[in-house]
């Protein structure tokens, strides 16, 4: 196992940030911690990167204990924290040289590993990090976290606030790194990114809700979801919530995702009910469960 977490708990004053969390990440795996702000993701990252002691439980990273062998862990992992981790007043090149030097290596020695990413920001290597755009900062931070060729890479919300195009590119970079044998633990609040991981843990309020691979995790959803559409989405939402058999009603892209308290829905009856509420152009059809549906059901 590349990362092994056993019954970790951590509290801050009155907040139980992490509650009895256990999971394992295999060597070379791309593992995602999926959950919103405040779920405990950052606390788990800080414990695993030896920056914070857990109150209870044990954990190892690359075979080293997070307390006993903290120095070995620091030499063997790369960590890209959620908040900007670079020196704003140093240039792109200076930042990278700085990180290489403190790990006793050089840019040239491990250039292969970062080449794909670094070439994209190399034209700006004399620019101060503080003057870079969000996407470029992200690429520089990733290069800095990789420059000492870590065995395990920790990425805490690398794509938060990043637009869909840059997010897609970032995940393509992660896939290429994974092929180079690096184990990656990544966290994200975007449920659509979960599908790109080998395995995921859904996490909320410090507790792990479920661990599985993305294809399997949706099978934990207990019932059929229906896509429903009508000419006025707000009226549709209100009407569905009023419907006596309704179990859950959530806007979901161009449709509303609806589940019923009964095993099967009565499409005719529901259509009539909605028409009675003044809705037109009604479409009701079964749909596939997404990871986000699963998350919401588990988090309820």
């Amino acid at each position: 196992m590349s990362i092994s977490v056993k019954n970790i708990s951590k509290s801050f004053k009155t907040v139980n940030a992490v509650k009895d969390v256990s999971f394992e990440v295999k060597e070379g795996e791309l593992f995602g911690l999926i959950g919103p702000d405040g779920a405990g993701k950052t606390t788990i990252f800080r414990i695993l990167t030896t920056l914070l002691f857990a109150d209870k439980g044990t954990a190892t990273v690359a075979g080293f204990d997070v307390i006993e062998d903290y120095k070995e862990i620091r030499n063997n992992v790369g960590y890209m924290p959620g908040r900007f981790s670079l020196y704003q007043d140093l240039t792109v090149e200076e930042n990278l040289t700085f990180f290489a030097t403190i790990f006793g290596t050089t840019i040239e020695e491990n250039y292969d590993l970062i080449k794909d990413i670094y070439v994209q920001i190399e034209p700006f290597k004399k620019r101060r990090a503080g003057q870079l755009s969000g996407g470029m900062k992200q690429k520089l931070a990733l290069s800095c976290a990789l420059i000492h060729k870590p065995k395990v890479l920790f990425l805490d919300e690398p794509t938060t606030g990043v637009d869909p195009v840059s997010r897609k590119e970032f995940w393509e970079m992660l896939k290429r790194l994974q092929q180079k044998g690096i184990t990656i633990l990544v966290s994200t609040p975007y449920m659509d990114e979960a599908a790109l991981c080998d395995r995921i843990a859904l996490i909320q309020d410090g507790k792990i809700l479920q661990i599985d691979d993305p294809q399997e995790i949706v099978k934990h959803f207990p019932t059929t979801i229906y896509d429903i559409k009508a000419d006025n989405i707000y009226k549709l939402l209100l009407a569905l919530k009023e419907y006596k058999h309704s179990y859950s009603v959530y806007p979901f892209g161009e449709f509303v995702h609806y589940t019923d308290k009964r095993d099967a829905i009565d499409t005719k009856e529901l259509t009539l009910f909605l028409k009675d509420k003044g809705l037109n152009n009604i479409i009701i059809q079964p749909t596939e469960t997404t990871i986000e549906d699963t998350f919401m059901e588990l988090a309820k």
């Binding site: 919103p36 702000d37 779920a39 609040p189 806007p251």
Partner: peptide, 24 residues
């Protein structure tokens, strides 16, 4: 301006219901 960044999926939807209501 990006009102729902990082917010959990259920709250994100409740937020949009508030938007629909305001628009209505």
């Amino acid at each position: 301006d990006e009102p729902t960044g990082g917010v959990d999926p259920i709250t994100r939807r409740q937020f949009w219901e508030m938007i629909y209501k305001a628009s209505n």
